[in-house]
Simulated assay, not measured.
Amino acid sequence: MKWRKSTYSDGGEGDTCVEVATLPARIAVRDSKAPARATLSFPAPAFAALVERLKSGGSRSPRM
């Protein structure tokens, strides 16, 4: 799996980096400060929706 720093990570002190990796049909996410710890993975469409929501400034949970 090839990890890359997310373009949405804050450039500040280098302490808010998120890394992403593309898997078949999923996107994996991890904290670059602790790469050996837990990794999250999301179905690709769900991750794309999350990124779009964050880009639009939305932080509220969608209504269910």
Rank of each mutant, 00 (worst) to 15 (best):
M1W: 00
M1Q: 06
M1C: 00
K2L: 07
K2S: 12
R4W: 01
R4I: 02
R4S: 11
K5A: 07
S6G: 10
S6E: 13
S6H: 12
S6W: 08
T7N: 06
T7G: 10
Y8E: 15
S9I: 05
D10H: 12
D10V: 13
G11L: 12
G11H: 11
G11C: 13
G11A: 15
G11I: 07
G12F: 10
E13H: 12
E13I: 04
E13G: 13
G14W: 09
G14R: 07
G14Y: 07
G14N: 10
D15E: 13
T16W: 06
T16M: 10
T16R: 15
C17P: 07
V18F: 08
V18E: 10
V18N: 10
V18R: 05
E19H: 11
E19C: 04
E19N: 05
P24M: 03
P24I: 12
A25K: 12
R26I: 00
I27C: 07
I27F: 02
I27L: 06
I27Y: 02
A28L: 08
A28E: 12
A28C: 07
A28D: 13
A28Y: 05
V29E: 09
D31Q: 09
D31T: 13
S32G: 05
S32E: 07
S32V: 04
S32A: 15
K33W: 02
K33R: 15
K33C: 04
A34E: 10
P35L: 03
P35R: 02
P35A: 01
A36I: 01
A36H: 15
A36Q: 14
R37Q: 15
R37P: 04
R37D: 12
A38Q: 11
A38E: 11
A38Y: 01
T39H: 13
L40R: 04
L40T: 10
S41P: 03
F42Y: 15
F42N: 08
P43E: 10
P43W: 01
P43Q: 06
P43G: 07
A44Y: 03
P45N: 04
P45V: 00
P45D: 03
A46Q: 10
A46C: 00
A46P: 01
F47Q: 08
F47C: 05
A48F: 00
L50F: 15
L50H: 07
L50I: 03
V51R: 02
E52T: 09
E52L: 09
E52N: 08
E52G: 12
E52K: 07
R53Y: 00
R53C: 06
L54R: 09
K55Q: 14
S56M: 06
S56F: 04
S56A: 15
G57H: 04
G58N: 12
G58D: 14
G58R: 09
G58V: 14
G58S: 12
S59A: 14
S59F: 08
R60K: 08
R60A: 15
S61K: 00
S61P: 01
S61E: 09
S61G: 05
P62D: 12
R63G: 05
M64C: 01
